[in-house]
């Protein structure tokens, strides 16, 4: 099966300030307490948020495929790859959602503007942009998981070109099948990076059946899970 290219525009996802701070490099040090009372930093983040947020759009383009995956080969129907990392991520999956998401060019402009005027702000816009695009991907992920769940599938974590041995060159294939240039205004440069830079392309595999019960594992992460034989272990 090859589905049509579909599009979705999201309202602004909830802003996760902790994530923004994390992307700015504010976590895990002894500075946490001091940081909390640093009003200059907090007000800079507020100012950056109010400058950037109104300029963002949240767009996703996606498409479904039927796929055939074995231990070392993935036939994604629009492309083939022998990436082992991808084969692992898609193990047991019969369906695939390919998506591209973007929050637009505003973060690039502001990062560039403040690059020379205020590197602190440039860093802040960089962090907000990263948090925004991740939140958009999370929203889409929730939607698509819910949708597929109703059809009897559960989804695996998303996987992007450039992860492990899955080549960045797959960006070209994804761009082709999603018509990213036309539908989202994305473009690939000669180094296969996307403009706008706050964009993501990724694959979400879906396998038939019930999602494995991860509830025993409090942190909901494979790394801390005891079930070493789980077929979906990453």
């Amino acid at each position: 099966m090859t589905g049509p290219v579909l599009a979705k525009t999201y309202p602004a996802p909830f802003v996760d300030r902790k994530e923004i701070l994390r992307y700015m490099g504010c976590r895990g040090g002894r500075a946490d307490e001091a940081r909390k009372t640093d009003s200059a930093l907090e007000s800079m983040i507020d100012e950056c948020l109010s400058e950037l947020l109104p300029q963002l759009t949240y767009n996703v383009s996606y498409r479904q495929f039927t796929i055939y995956v074995d231990a070392c080969n993935c036939n994604l129907s629009f492309m083939q790859t022998d990436s082992r990392a991808l084969a692992g991520a898609l193990a047991g999956c019969e369906r695939l959602v390919v998506f591209a998401a973007t929050i637009g060019l505003a973060p690039d402009r502001l990062i560039s503007k403040y690059g020379c005027l205020s590197p602190a702000r440039a860093l802040c816009f960089q962090a907000i942009g990263a948090e925004r695009i991740e939140s958009l991907c999370a929203s889409f992920n929730d939607d698509i998981s819910f949708l597929l769940q109703q059809e009897g599938y559960f989804t695996r974590p998303r996987f992007s070109p450039g992860y492990g041995d899955f080549p960045l060159a797959a960006q070209k294939d994804i761009f082709r099948v999603l018509d990213c240039e036309r539908r989202l205004g994305l473009s690939l440069n000669d180094s296969l990076l996307m403009s706008p830079s706050k964009s993501v392309t990724a694959l979400i595999g879906a396998a038939a059946g019930e999602k494995p019960d991860c509830s025993r594992n409090a942190q909901n992460s494979c790394r801390t899970c005891d079930d070493r034989d789980c077929p979906f272990r990453r």
Binding site: D38, L41, P119, A120, L123
Partner: peptide
């Protein structure tokens, strides 16, 4: 020094520099 001792974070270092 605070940055190297991890008592100051990068954005704070930058804001001081600015």
């Amino acid at each position: 020094k605070g940055f190297e001792d991890k008592t100051v974070y990068l954005p704070q270092l930058l804001m001081s520099a600015e």
